[in-house]
């Protein structure tokens, strides 16, 4: 019995140690933005200051990247991905296409290739040749292409779990196809669509390599790249400014999550007796 007690203490101690290890960066993220002399080590600032934010907010390029370029790209990726994934997954789930489960699995396999670094050169050539180089559309389409397989897979799983009897009940109740989509299919799909939409938004928000390669115009680059605004010409990062910009960079995603969670909730409410 005594060794069991000792083991519990040891495992708990190890757990605390691991937790601290992973919490340190977050702790840095809380303190550094308010410290004018922040370094890469975690330190409680002697005086809390908003000076870092002041400088960052006055950097027009960085702010435009955030509120315009990043929002445009992420919003576009979110809307297109959610729309296409929902329609495609609905077809895959409810339709009678032969081999449809194989197709979804192959798609999932491809998803790791399309966004992968390995395909960047062909993607660059493709986007350049169809005249979408240096455009938001080029970045959006590339990112959507990368997101779609996973999104379709998630949505298909979700739609598979929705009983067909919802639609069938509406059919025998006398609803037309359009009424069924509007009144039954879309509302019941909404929790799944939200998950995919948020996933796509976050993915577009965090995308770095694709916009770096496909957009040369500095004024059009998203926030993920605009971090370079806070590097000196010699390539030395300005840690205090970067930490403040990072906070601003995180806010939209956090707010999006909070709004959706408060308004709809990431849950599924059942009306089917299992």
């Amino acid at each position: 019995m005594k060794s069991g007690w000792l083991l519990r203490v040891l495992t708990n101690a190890l757990g605390v140690l691991l937790a601290l290890f992973f919490l340190l960066p977050l702790l840095w993220f809380v303190f550094a933005p308010f410290n004018e002399r922040a370094t890469l080590s975690v330190r409680i600032p002697e005086a809390f200051s908003l000076h870092n934010f002041e400088v960052v907010l006055n950097n027009d390029t960085a702010i435009r990247s955030l509120v315009q370029n990043s929002l445009l790209i992420s919003g576009g990726v979110m809307i297109l991905t959610a729309l296409i994934a929902t329609l495609a997954a609905y077809g895959f789930s409810r339709g009678s296409l032969p081999g449809r489960s194989i197709i979804t699995y192959v798609l999932l396999l491809f998803s790791s290739v399309v966004t992968g670094t390995a395909s960047l050169v062909p993607i660059f050539v493709l986007i350049y040749n169809i005249g979408m180089f240096n455009t938001y559309q080029g970045v959006i389409l590339t990112l959507v292409g990368g997101m779609l397989p996973t999104s379709i897979f998630i949505m298909r799983d979700f739609i598979d779990s929705l009983p067909r009897s919802y639609e069938e009940a509406a059919m025998v109740s006398g609803a037309s196809s359009l009424q069924i989509v509007r009144d039954i299919v879309f509302p019941t799909l909404r929790p799944g669509v939200l998950v995919v939409a948020v996933l796509a938004f976050v993915n577009g928000w965090g995308a770095f390599l694709t916009p770096l390669i496909l957009i040369r115009n500095a004024a059009m680059r998203p926030a993920a790249i605009a971090f370079y605004q806070f590097y000196s010409d010699e390539g030395t990062p300005n840690i205090p400014l970067i930490s403040a910009y990072a906070v601003l960079y995180t806010l939209p995603v956090l707010i999006l999550y909070l709004i959706i969670n408060a308004r709809y909730g990431f849950r599924f409410f059942g009306g089917i007796k299992q």
Binding site: P163, S165, Y166, E168, A169, A170, M171, V172, S173, G174, A175, S176, D183, I184, P187, T188, R190, F268, F269, G270, G271, I272, K273, Q274
Partner: peptide
């Protein structure tokens, strides 16, 4: 179904959850 003037009760009830 909509042109048959029928009503149906499903095994799982299929009540619209929303």
């Amino acid at each position: 179904p909509r042109d048959r003037d029928i009503a149906m009760v499903f095994q799982d009830y299929a009540l619209y959850p929303h």
